[in-house]
Design a protein around this nucleic acid. Structure first.
Lengths: 241, 241
DNA sequence: ATACATTGTGTTTCATGGACACAAAGCCGC
DNA sequence: GCGGCTTTGTGTCCATGAAACACAATGTAT
């Protein structure tokens, strides 16, 4: 209802700033698939608290920007990676003691970016220690350093959500380049899920979902049979039966 | 990362309050099933903005309380209903213009309470215009007044989530009293989903899910065959195959 | 004891998901 | 140019879960 800190009997003299406020940040778990592993983008903290520890990129929300905007801005500022191909709000973490400085409520997001091996413009996903962070790099999610704040919990939540959503939507588009082979698509699934899939069943399901369209182009990969290139018909996640 | 507004080179002189901050509220869509309809708890606003309009209960988060705590407190303060049997964070709404007063970021929840007809202690779910709100009452979700702020959007999100979650978890426990008949359980499902279900399939699925246990007691309902009373084995939502 | 309203129970059918093997295409080396 | 290698591309069977569907049993009131 948003009514608490104002004088009930004098609506004209509203003062929203009469009470001490929590701070609001956004934090983002940005994922990509590279070198056969699912990786998340982390930055090394330079300052107290958790100086020297690795953390999810993030920062304070400005008064005049939407939450999504804040996330994209922080990603660029702190890590230099281009705008995420997919961004989804995850959960809001607001426990009282989660930040030793003061009360901080963090709206967590996860983001997906195409990997470098699918032959994409490299710059888009290469981190380069932004203006704020000491260092930024991709970490495989199966060999992470220990994380600052409650970021391990945020990351675990993000991973669970990503894996679930991969199963019943077409979000995988955000992890690939415009055109790709069915084997490349399957590899992305396998990397993220962490186990291997049956080729025939995978192709059957993907083609039945009506989310892909074939192109006349092929990818010829060295000494073997060329593969047809496909693309997603929509660049937004749609439900898959 | 939570680093933006502090001096990078002087970690000891941290001042988290150096920047203007958004306000943080919680809002809650509290549902119950009564008189054959799915109802949501609304309060009538007494003050600007949207004075006279109906809104979801909610209010500012205090510095020293967790988000869930704030929700339960606001529910009691504004509507007088007892603590919700189930509470789940929904989404955080933070668009710049969503509140005409100032920048307000709202962490939205939905809550479930048992209805009165299942023979529960009435007081627990009878609203009685709390200290803050002019008036509080249950509204059937299929005949709502127009809502303040973006609360219609929040409510729509809550409804979608509730209906989905009812299908694959045992959250329905929060809408019933301790013991209930299978027909009462089915009625709750039908009220929330908005369509009727096949009795045999419903019972088969519920009993197969291993979330219920029979009691030796029966409910004798007037002039007809008595029905066995059941209870949920866990008072937390568990996944149902 | 008979009529009434509600509880309580099984089978068939269909769709979906998982296991499983082999021919076709292109390149390389000989 | 022929054989060998590696990857693409395809179809069937089986099990499991979801949906349709009807009737006997129980207790009360007349």
């Amino acid at each position: 209802m948003d009514t608490k800190p104002q004088s009930q009997d004098n609506p004209s003299q509203y003062n929203a700033d009469a009470f001490a406020k929590p701070s609001v940040t956004v934090d983002v778990a940005a994922f990509t698939a590279r070198e056969g592993k699912l990786c998340v983008l982390l930055v090394k903290r330079g300052v107290w608290p958790f100086a020297g520890a690795w953390a999810l990129p993030g920062g304070f929300v400005r008064l005049d920007e939407d939450l999504d905007t804040a996330v994209q801005r922080e990603l660029v500022e702190e890590t230099g990676v281009a705008a995420a191909h997919y961004l989804e709000q995850l959960y809001t973490f607001g426990a009282v003691g989660r930040d030793p400085r003061t009360r901080v409520i963090s709206v967590a997001y996860y983001a997906l970016l195409p990997g470098p091996e699918s032959g994409l413009p490299l710059a888009a996903s290469e981190p380069e220690a932004g203006t704020d962070a000491a260092e930024a790099r991709w970490w495989p999610v199966d060999s992470l350093p220990s994380l600052a704040f409650d970021h391990a919990e945020i990351l675990a939540t993000a991973l669970t959500r990503l894996r679930a959503k991969l199963g019943y939507t077409s979000v995988a588009y955000a992890l690939l380049t415009e055109e790709f082979t069915l084997t490349e698509l399957q590899t992305v699934y396998e990397i993220i899920l962490g186990y291997s899939l049956d080729k025939r069943n995978f192709r059957k399901k993907m083609l039945a979902a009506e989310i892909l369209e074939g192109t006349p182009r092929q990818k010829r990969d060295g000494a073997h049979r060329p593969a047809q290139l496909f693309r997603f018909t929509k660049k937004e996640p749609v439900f898959m039966g």
